[in-house]
Design a protein around this nucleic acid. Sequence first.
DNA 1: TGGGTTATGTTATGATATAACGATAAATAT
DNA 2: ATATTTATCGTTATATCATAACATAACCCA
Lengths: 160, 160
Amino acid sequence: MTPKPDAFHSHDHRHCSDQGLQRAEEILQSRKLRLTPVRRQALQILLAEHRALGAYEVLERLAAAGFGNQPPVAYRALEFLVEQGLAHKVRRLNAFAACMHPETDHAPVFLICRGCNALAETPAEQVRAALNAAAHAAGFTVERTSIEALGLCPACEAAA
Amino acid sequence: MTPKPDAFHSHDHRHCSDQGLQRAEEILQSRKLRLTPVRRQALQILLAEHRALGAYEVLERLAAAGFGNQPPVAYRALEFLVEQGLAHKVRRLNAFAACMHPETDHAPVFLICRGCNALAETPAEQVRAALNAAAHAAGFTVERTSIEALGLCPACEAAA
DNA sequence: TGGGTTATGTTATGATATAACGATAAATAT
DNA sequence: ATATTTATCGTTATATCATAACATAACCCA
Ligand SMILES: [Zn+2]
Ligand SMILES: [Zn+2]
Ligand SMILES: [Zn+2]
Ligand SMILES: [Zn+2]
């Protein structure tokens, strides 16, 4: 079978980026929230790469684009994007990544390549279902999850 | 059915703690590695509670027990314990917890109560299997995982 | 246009983590 | 036993990640 285009396979990335922005606009409009210039720029910065960026990395680029250059500038924009499900925090990396399907599937499962730093958000209903089942067996009520795998993407695995 | 005794249910905790230390000794002896005084004390500090402790929290207690009081003292001991599978890092909390079954089941799945900070390590073969399957479908080779759920333990849920 | 609300810039500080180096203790090899 | 090597520990310094607090500016809606 043909592999789906994802972070691990070359693809027309302009498409990811443009579509990401467009969806964000729609989503926020429907929620009557504002995609202000900093937020928009922060999202574009994240969308520009299929990898997670540290807050200070985002900050540098925001500053280069004419915005403030103090940490809260980046953290606030990122916090907003995360709250709205337009970005996620990758806990293993203390870093942030744009969400690749902001409308559905909102508890992300990440695959992080330690070779090239590529980050893929994989649909994983079943992983969440299994986690919910395990939690339920312990009488635990799940509110948020972090599910992340570190390893090698196909290309880096082949190279190794 | 009767709930298993775990972090979320009252139990003879002395047992957890004593057994944890004893297993650690056996495991390290079999690997010809040393459970030095700082390492032993760090493990006891983690074993004392069914919750995750920040490195600086551990450091305070190490210092109070007569060890050095600079960050590397704690970080080194914790790093060793984590490498040996005797403790885990809880990424959502940037904190560390003793492993509750150091011999088996070595990719932990954590349930973190946001009400009382209790932390349970739950056996979750199926969660890992599902994650491995999802990764495999993307051609990704999994090396390490972080699987964590934040929510409410039975007691806190009942209280809410 | 006034007045509440939301968002941004800025200063300062807090929290988490590691690099580097010298001193000490333990294991190993004569 | 003593020398040599290796692992561990203490300490200083610094890097990295994150937020509190407050002033200013933009937006929104009477
Ligand atoms: Zn997502
Ligand atoms: Zn890769
Ligand atoms: Zn216990
Ligand atoms: Zn609880």
